[in-house]
Amino acid sequence: MSTPKTPQKPMPGNADQTPGRRPVLPWPLPALIVWSACWALFLSLRALQLPVLWSLILATSLGLAAGLRAASTWRKLFISAGFPLSLAASNLGDGLSPWVWLIPLGLLLLLYPMSAWRDAPLFPTPHGILDGLDKVAPLKCTDRILDAGCGLGAGLAELYRVYPLAQLDGVEKSWPLRLLCAWRCPFAHVRHADIWKEDWSAYSMVYMFQRPESMGPAAEKARQELSKGSWLVSLEFEAPTLKPVVVLRNRADKPVWVYRMG
């Protein structure tokens, strides 16, 4: 725990070398590996005489699942779309009906709706990142916490570890992610909703891991809807118009900004 400080920005071109993170493969090697894996799966399924439509769906789904782990929206799209685009450009794609190519696009939009692209990509909350939050912001068992944009539930799991008696809610714009999150987090009430249209007034704490540009609107929404004494907690990114009570630094590269309304 420390006094508020402005987090240091990573050096340009060195995003994959951030201290404290596991080493990652240099770009575009992850994309090439995923595309190769998709092609290997597709050709293996065709060798087993699985219908071409199911081979396409399964191989595309593999690319989508791997693309979710990428560090930016454009890399997610680049990795996810690589296999179906390369298949369309190959001789193997000549025999497919034109409507079949709507399947990969539909899968991508179902998993990550366009209306949610302005919010954060799927970045999970690290384990242990909220250690000490309950000492700074103590809550009662009747208090409710909202994870605004809960993804696959890593943030909810971390909140549950820190506040095991509080009532946890999660909202997620993607239907598949919402279903997976509800399955992973039976201790929380997970709903399909837009975090910006959701009413925050019933919550004693709202937790977010969004984009830097989302924090201005988040601060304004918190001012308007959260009651006096409620908490806004942001992982990594500072709300520019709010003064934090404290900044938790359990990881040097991911500060936790803790704000109290009123």
Rank of each mutant, 00 (worst) to 15 (best):
P51M: 00
G63P: 11
W54N: 05
S44I: 13
T60L: 02
L64D: 01
T60D: 11
R161N: 11
A65K: 03
L64E: 03
V52R: 00
T18G: 09
P30S: 00
A37Q: 01
L177C: 08
P98N: 10
D147P: 05
R251V: 04
A65Q: 02
F237V: 04
L43C: 01
M114C: 12
A148S: 03
V247Q: 15
D94S: 09
P10H: 05
N91P: 07
A218I: 06
R223H: 11
L58W: 05
A89Y: 10
K135N: 05
H127K: 14
R75T: 07
L177R: 11
V258K: 12
V136N: 05
L43A: 04
V190Y: 00
P23S: 00
V245Y: 01
L87V: 04
L107P: 11
E220I: 03
A182H: 02
Y112A: 08
R75M: 12
G128Y: 13
W231H: 02
T241Q: 03
C141I: 06
P176L: 15
Y203H: 02
A15D: 02
Y112N: 01
V206F: 05
M261D: 10
G63M: 10
P164H: 01
F209R: 00
Q8S: 15
L56F: 03
W117Y: 10
R211L: 15
Y112Q: 03
I103C: 03
G95R: 00
Y112L: 09
L130A: 07
C38E: 13
V136Y: 01
